[in-house]
Design a protein around this nucleic acid. Structure first.
Lengths: 199, 199
DNA sequence: TTGACAGGTGTTCCAGAGAACACTAGCATG
DNA sequence: CATGCTAGTGTTCTCTGGAACACCTGTCAA
């Protein structure tokens, strides 16, 4: 038997990551045995349980299968605060697509992307040309950035509570606070933002 | 029996997408029945086969399970500039579809995500806690936002040309321009930005 | 009118995925 | 030295996921 190497699991984890990149799922216990060379499924099961306590995988909500956590995809996430030198060890890999999507979108069927027009939210770091991730169902609360419908126009503002009435506050001193007369119609809540530089 | 509705599958697809967002896998035939209301697993199987020909799912390399394709992760892109009233037209599939990852990442193997620390770029709309998309290969040019290595520390600044020498300019008046003595080492070029609101 | 097809229901059957349990070899620790 | 923990092997059992097949019923086209 090989000596107990505490860093061996990270090598195993790499195998699982490679498999996930191809098949987009955590391998079965049987396939883990093939991938790593275990002779017994129990070893695979225990490995998964170790990876669970380490925070790389977790049970599905139905508790009938394993799923990766965000830490599972963590490889291309560089920690610039800690690292000194040795930048080459943090190369990204092919299979890590859809990390961003999963980071931003919780309920796909209720989520859409909305391009930002204008600079009324510039002081909140939301620029013209950015794309905001909008979740339609979410109940908007004071302090949320929302897409509201004012005079048949869509507008992105912060929802605030002013004397127990809702109002829309731009983040740009050049624009006034919007205090709607009747009902304030909220199209959706901004849950994320995406920006692309240079072309 | 309900009338054959050609757009019914897209509603089913939404259920699968929501399930995938939670459990990170295509549901089993049995669970598809629960999610949608099918009484027979065969209906679930045929649905998956339809979605395969439509290009939303495919078989794993081992041909023992279903996995999502890139089309599975497409999000609707709303054009609020056109709007005028009818926001619900965006519900349908007719609008443009859009892949966040593809939008931000051109070369996955050369791309990584870097969390932003500090507020030295706040005036450029880059906040503490944002994630920037960094491409390692790209040749940096004046005007680019770059991750540079200064004194063994990673720092995010704008690369500028000052008297035919490169320097690093923060976008926050509280910080000074960095004029490196010797070689200025560029780790990568910022090609995108991702921000998540509320939790 | 008559197919043919699409989208379902219902049923049977089997492989395999995972749980559970007993057991073992190294390695640390008191 | 005993003790216990960790990371494995090997085995059995159960249950479920999926394939296959027969059948049903609206819709549309010829």
């Amino acid at each position: 038997m090989p000596p107990a190497d505490p860093s061996r699991d990270s090598e195993y984890l790499d195998r699982l990551r490679d498999y996930y990149a191809e098949a987009r799922r955590i391998p079965t216990q049987q396939r883990i045995c093939e991938l790593i060379g275990f002779a017994s499924k129990t070893a695979a099961k225990k490995l998964l349980e170790r990876l669970e306590t380490a925070g790389f995988v977790e049970r599905t909500p139905d508790d009938d299968a394993w799923m990766p956590t965000t830490r599972f995809f963590e490889r291309p996430l560089a920690d610039i605060a800690v690292r000194a030198g040795a930048p080459d060890m943090i190369e990204g890999t092919q299979g890590d697509m859809f990390l961003i999507d999963q980071y931003l979108v919780r309920q796909p069927s209720r989520t859409l992307m909305v391009p930002v027009k204008g600079d009324s939210m510039i002081d909140a770091g939301i620029h013209d040309g950015d794309l905001v991730v909008v979740e339609r169902t979410k109940a908007a609360k004071s302090g949320d950035f929302v897409i509201a419908i004012v005079d048949d126009e869509f507008t992105l503002k912060e929802l605030i509570l002013e004397k127990s009435k809702f109002a829309l506050k731009p983040h740009n001193p050049a624009y006034p606070i919007i205090r709607p007369q009747g009902q304030l119609e909220i199209f959706g809540v901004v849950t994320g933002l995406v920006r692309r530089y240079q072309g």
